[in-house]
Amino acid sequence: MQSSSRRSGAAAVLNIGEVLAQLNADFPSVTASKIRFYEEKGLISPQRTPAGYRQFRESDVERLRFVLALQRDHYLPLKVIREYLEAIDQGQTPENLPPGVSIAPRMVSEGLARELESRSRRLSPEQLRTESGAGLELYETMLSYGLLEIQDGSFDDHALKVARACTSLAAHGLEPRHLRPFQAAAEREFGLVERAVGPRSAKRDGTSSVRAAETAREIAELCLSLHSALVHARIAEMETP
């Protein structure tokens, strides 16, 4: 039976058993423990649910095929394969690939791809206001309270998300001056994330930096899930007679 994500046309999310089923025809010796070993070595970085279950996407499966083929057909050590993946994650074509080895276009993890896209997109103040629906007064107030930071005369995609949230909250009577605690909380949560990934991000190689960023996003999502659960628990108290 197909998963709901595949039935709906959304990007497929697979569990480790479904990944094994996809790989088994070409790599019958692959096991769940081997996949977990590759994750420990930083060759793949599947997403995790709040409960800790691995979620694999097409990019993770493509990376696994790449690793498995290089090990089976060319007997390459993981150190060399990791260097190839590092180059791919940086948008480069690895040098000295064995003959016949090709790179799938989806091998860069989706989280990293979204991050790279958000970094490259820049919006002018006018574009930010238009896409977020913020009026001039609200825009200037968000700037004055530090909720928005303009860099080189433009904003990134994260700023657009902030502006959209502030615009929607303003419709409920929550003005930027009321939202300053969110900025302080974000700084505290970032401190926790930075402390958790610090040893990995301190390494100078590109692969470690990429994995540190992906781990940081995962921890941030877990922090948001915790925050949401705590707030909803208090809201539930309001409903108690």
Rank of each mutant, 00 (worst) to 15 (best):
A202Y: 04
F37G: 07
V193M: 08
P50T: 06
R48P: 05
M1A: 09
D26M: 02
A104D: 13
A159T: 08
E110I: 09
E137A: 13
A134G: 02
S201G: 01
A12M: 11
L169R: 00
R195L: 10
K161V: 14
L68S: 11
R211H: 05
G206F: 05
P28D: 10
S225H: 12
A216N: 04
G135K: 00
S209K: 14
L179E: 01
R6S: 06
P176F: 08
S154G: 12
L116K: 14
D157A: 15
T49K: 03
I103S: 14
L230V: 13
A21I: 00
R195Y: 08
R129I: 00
L14W: 07
S124P: 08
A25F: 10
P46D: 13
E140L: 04
E39Q: 14
I88Y: 12
E131N: 02
S144D: 14
A186N: 12
P105L: 07
S208H: 06
V13F: 07
R6A: 09
Q71M: 04
E175W: 08
E126W: 04
V108C: 05
R164P: 00
L174E: 02
I35R: 06
A184T: 13
Y53K: 14
S8E: 09
P50Y: 02
A69S: 07
I81S: 01
S59R: 14
R63K: 09
L179S: 11
G42T: 05
A229L: 09
L224P: 04
R177Q: 08
V67Q: 06
R129E: 01
V162E: 00
R204F: 02
L138C: 11
V13G: 02
Y53F: 12
G52W: 15
A236H: 04
V108T: 14
A216Y: 05
F37P: 06
N15R: 06
S118Y: 13
G173V: 12
L20D: 08
A25L: 07
P98W: 13
L112A: 13
L97P: 01
A25W: 04
V197Y: 12
D152Q: 15
N24W: 09
T49L: 12
L70W: 14
A51V: 05
L14N: 02
E137Y: 04
G42S: 07
L112G: 05
G17V: 06
G133E: 00
Y139C: 02
Q71G: 15
E18S: 06
A236W: 08
S208T: 08
R106F: 00
L97C: 12
A186R: 06
S8I: 03
E214M: 12
P46E: 11
D152C: 09
R180F: 10
E194N: 05
M238H: 09
D73I: 07
N96E: 14
R54V: 03
A51H: 13
H178A: 15
L179M: 15
I35V: 14
R121H: 03
E239K: 00
A51Q: 14
